[in-house]
């Protein structure tokens, strides 16, 4: 074993040495050109991402005045303020976290609806119609967040400040203050988003259902499995990567939601999301330090989620 190991390392080092010796002019030129090709993104990335990231960390560890450009180092004071629910910052931040977490309820609902829709569209009876259904169900996804939020606002309108009750309250003969009370407002956002993001889940599920080999189902047929068994024992397990992808994507999208609070809730103090909180304190009130600290906390969570995604998907394993 040991001998084989040393032999291996020897051949390895020999190979690299040979490579080094054999690095011809052409190869060097190619390396230089290849580096030139990746230089624009690398420089742009350094200027617009790495440097701002460092500055954001500095902001969060200090007290920065945007008007006079004075900076004093205060350590973790900003984080302490944010995480202390008794201070004004802390109570607002806590509210933003709770709101954002409750928006996440949308994710499993949308994925579940998408899964049902894809399963039905993939069934034998929908062979001729599935294209139409996929086309229609995905269609709202191409509309802008502004337009869809504006429409949903009119649909949920409760006759508070505007002169008309919305179609939901009128149709069901109810009088829920959808746009003015906290719980109805959050539920309205969840309903709206579950319906809105169902389409992309359906398309992805449908596409990967088509990729599942028919052999599994034939084998299951021979064993006498029924439709439900086939779904729970074959289809759903085979769809795990897509489910995971959708979960992660929607989750990090939901954590960064802004339009829901800004447009749909019209900046309602009680329904601020985390990014709305950051925007409000950072750009609206020019308190760069608190906003940066909050953004970095959010960034840590999203970073964790992204690493999780890379770990579990085979995207990381790129053979170069």
């Amino acid at each position: 074993m040991d001998l084989a190991y040393t032999l291996n390392t020897q051949t390895l080092s020999y190979n690299t040495k040979e490579k080094k010796r054999k690095r011809t002019k052409i190869e060097k030129k190619e390396n230089r050109i290849a580096f030139l090709f990746i230089l624009p993104p690398v420089i742009s990335f350094t200027i617009f991402t790495i440097i701002p990231l460092i500055v954001a960390v500095m902001f969060s560890l200090g007290d920065f005045n945007g008007a006079t450009f004075q900076y004093t180092f205060v350590g973790f004071d900003n984080f302490a303020k944010l995480l202390n629910p008794n201070s004004t910052y802390g109570s607002n931040f806590l509210k933003a976290i709770v709101n954002t977490l409750s928006f996440i309820i949308e994710v499993p609902i949308a994925i579940f609806l998408g899964l049902i829709a894809a399963t039905l569209a993939n069934a034998k009876g929908c062979k001729k119609t599935n294209h139409l259904w996929r086309l229609l169900i995905y269609l709202p996804a191409v509309c802008s967040a502004v337009a869809s939020n504006v429409i949903w606002r009119a649909i949920f309108s409760d006759g508070g400040t505007a002169s008309s009750a919305g179609i939901i309250n009128t149709l069901f003969h109810i009088d829920i203050r959808w746009l003015h009370d906290r719980i109805p407002l959050i539920s309205a956002i969840i309903i709206k988003n579950s319906i809105g993001s169902m389409g992309s889940a359906m398309i992805l599920y449908y596409a990967s259902m088509c990729n599942i080999s028919k052999d599994y189902y034939e084998a299951a047929d021979i064993d006498g499995a029924n439709g439900l068994q086939k779904f729970t024992k074959i289809t759903f397990p085979m769809l795990t990567p897509v489910t995971f992808y959708l979960l992660i994507m929607r989750l990090s999208g939901c954590l960064q939601t802004y339009a829901d609070s800004y447009i749909f809730a019209a900046g309602d103090r009680d329904v601020q999301s985390i990014v709305y909180f950051i925007w409000n304190y950072g750009l609206n009130k020019q308190n760069y330090s608190i906003a940066s600290a909050a953004a970095l906390l959010l960034g840590l969570v999203i970073m964790g989620i992204t690493i999780l995604q890379f770990r579990f998907s085979n995207k990381w394993v790129l053979d170069l």
Partner: peptide, 26 residues
Amino acid sequence: RLRHKRFWLLFLLSGMMIPGAVLLMP
């Protein structure tokens, strides 16, 4: 053929992890 290919790729890909809100203020 590019030297330190993996490093550069990981360097650029790490940008996908940073949410826009962090970079907003700077």
